[in-house]
Amino acid sequence: MNEIRKEDERVKGTQEYVLLDLSHSPETGFDQFAQVVKRTFGKELFVGLWVTLREMGSTLFGKGKHTVSYPLEKMPIAPRYRAIHDMLRLLESGNYRCIGCGLCEKICISNCIAMDTKYDENQRKEVSEYTINFGRCIFCGYCAEVCPELAIVHGGRYENASEQRASFSLFEDMLKPIDMLTQQKEFDGFGAVSPNADENIKKTPLAY
């Protein structure tokens, strides 16, 4: 028992926990009666009433409401949130970044990425088919993590309800539109290089 207590002390560290006093619950009938009297004529019931009334006042005349009226306004989502994928373009040429290496297809644990490549007239590899089946995708983020070119990343589009599977699984839909190329930001979300990547680089220990 004592050892457990010590263990608790150690885990507790410097945090300041407040222990609720739950020691006695009423045993005899008189104790019960006393508790009821205390709860009835004490502040407890009326504090509850006051709190709700105060909240009503502050909702109407003060701080306003908590509700986000969702389709009209949206909460900002975190940058590392993993939603529907985005396909990024090269800023210089406007061409898509994907080099057709197929790593994402290989690593995908739910087998939802399917791609097909061919050589174009310049003997460059070209992605001819690229689909992600969002009915199966579990948004684990492995594809974005494995991509060497930062071509596939997770975007912020989380409202993925659709009447047809095809309407969000085509490469063209996920690809950044060419006319919005100037608005493409370098992705700092999942799978991207962290902002302090330079500091984390260590010299390769070559000299033995």
Binding site: T52, L53, E55, M56, S58, T59, L60, K63, K65, H66, T67, S69
Partner: peptide
């Protein structure tokens, strides 16, 4: 409406 305001919600709008 009253319950919504007391819980800082909107109620029917």
């Amino acid at each position: 409406k009253v319950l919504a305001f007391m819980q800082r919600r909107l109620g029917p709008t």
